[in-house]
Computed example of a mutant assay.
Amino acid sequence: MNELAVLDVVLEDELRRDDSLVFLATSTPPQWRREFGEARIRTCAISEQAMVGAAVGAAMTGLRPVVDLNRASFSFLVMDQLVNHAARLHYLTDGGYRAPMVVTSATRGRQQLGPQNEQCPYGVFMQVPGIRVAVPGTAEDACALLRSAVRENGPVMLFIAPELARGANLRTALTAPPVPFGEAVFRHRGDAATVVAIGGAVRPAVEGVAALAAQGVDCDLIDPRTLVPLDVEALASSLRRTGRLVLVDDGPRSGAPAQILSALYDVPGLPEALGGRVAFVCAPDSPVPSTPALEQYTWPEPQAVAAAVRRLAEPRP
């Protein structure tokens, strides 16, 4: 099922807590089918459109579907079901219907799955009113945000980076309580710059910021956790103090980083405070290469994060 296996345990816990939760995927755990019944655990044909379309209908009847799309790239196959229907139902029906559903999927991993399967499309869904977008940066937050997502009253896209499983404290992750959507977390504090890292890019950003701290250069490192809603105030309060912004993401700069920068530039006085001191440490705006030799150059590495901070800190001519 999920790339982060600990999420299976969390979802199993939530299925026991809430009888209205149902699960749809192309592969489902046999023990779930035995415990919860095939009416709640649906093993589906390989048709993402059918799964998400069925979930929208189920949500309209009062159920709370969770759909596992496997790869985030497959979210492009269900744009009609998500964008034109799930996201718009409350508006089209004057609040008569809503679609409380969760769609989970895995983003990029170091697996050489090629340009069609190694994508981070959450920036696209940031542009869709009515859809909440969660991109956790740790295994603990992945579990906490899943618990939050199944309690939401509208559609939630939960994007999980496979890298989160590496070095995760599973005991801590399993006991993580729900966290509010729209509440960023500071992973480090400092005045040299504000580093905003998304999802799987949080780990290299932590390492890059730690390397800088060892040299006496401390930065604010912020993990937004959710992109919709975005904790603009937390980011803006940091930027008013540091005046420098580094955006770090596994996806291209034209995706979520550009969306975040746009939201920040709507804050009065913030563009002047930044004065153009903005850097991106992201994948290039190109398809992800299939070969390891090329793909290695598309990842946001710790040294690139540190170099971006140093570059912004240099005195201007």
Rank of each mutant, 00 (worst) to 15 (best):
108 R>G: 04
235 L>W: 00
64 R>C: 07
275 G>K: 09
210 A>Y: 06
292 P>W: 07
111 Q>L: 15
58 A>G: 11
246 V>L: 00
27 S>G: 10
2 N>P: 15
89 L>Y: 13
66 V>R: 03
216 G>E: 12
229 P>D: 06
74 F>D: 01
187 R>L: 14
15 L>F: 08
48 E>F: 11
54 A>K: 03
259 Q>G: 13
194 T>G: 07
123 G>P: 03
224 P>T: 09
195 V>S: 02
272 E>T: 14
65 P>Y: 05
74 F>P: 00
254 S>F: 03
231 D>Q: 04
300 P>K: 00
145 L>A: 09
273 A>P: 04
153 N>D: 14
206 V>T: 12
194 T>E: 08
162 P>W: 03
294 L>T: 00
79 M>A: 13
295 E>G: 01
176 A>G: 06
68 D>H: 05
137 G>Y: 04
158 L>Y: 06
148 S>F: 04
87 A>N: 03
312 L>K: 02
265 Y>V: 06
19 D>P: 13
225 R>H: 05
160 I>K: 01
248 V>Q: 02
111 Q>W: 12
248 V>G: 04
306 A>I: 02
9 V>Y: 01
227 L>H: 02
61 T>S: 14
302 P>Q: 07
105 S>E: 01
100 P>H: 02
116 Q>P: 05
229 P>W: 07
5 A>G: 13
286 S>K: 09
210 A>F: 10
282 C>I: 02
232 V>H: 07
56 V>C: 11
314 E>Y: 00
222 I>S: 01
14 E>K: 07
252 P>G: 05
208 G>W: 01
61 T>D: 12
242 T>Y: 01
114 G>M: 09
166 R>P: 05
310 R>V: 08
136 P>A: 11
268 P>D: 10
245 L>P: 02
11 L>A: 05
121 P>W: 07
266 D>H: 12
291 T>H: 09
288 V>K: 04
211 A>T: 11
99 A>R: 01
305 V>W: 00
52 V>I: 12
182 G>W: 00
132 R>F: 10
129 P>H: 12
165 A>M: 08
123 G>M: 09
124 V>Y: 14
187 R>S: 12
131 I>K: 02
94 D>H: 15
79 M>C: 10
132 R>Y: 10
273 A>T: 14
266 D>C: 11
44 C>F: 07
60 M>R: 13
238 S>N: 09
7 L>Y: 04
50 A>S: 15
68 D>K: 00
34 R>M: 13
10 V>E: 03
141 D>C: 07
167 G>I: 05
12 E>T: 10
138 T>N: 11
1 M>V: 13
177 P>E: 08
239 L>Y: 00
314 E>V: 08
21 L>I: 14
210 A>P: 03
264 L>F: 09
150 V>I: 13
45 A>I: 15
106 A>T: 08
175 T>L: 12
9 V>I: 12
9 V>T: 14
294 L>I: 07
48 E>D: 14
65 P>E: 04
234 A>K: 07
75 S>M: 15
152 E>W: 05
147 R>D: 13
181 F>E: 05
266 D>A: 14
314 E>F: 04
219 C>V: 06
125 F>M: 14
77 L>E: 13
177 P>G: 07
224 P>Y: 08
280 F>N: 08
15 L>A: 05
247 L>C: 06
14 E>D: 03
211 A>V: 06
166 R>G: 07
9 V>W: 01
83 V>D: 11
169 N>Q: 11
60 M>C: 15
211 A>K: 06
54 A>R: 06
284 P>R: 12
92 L>W: 11
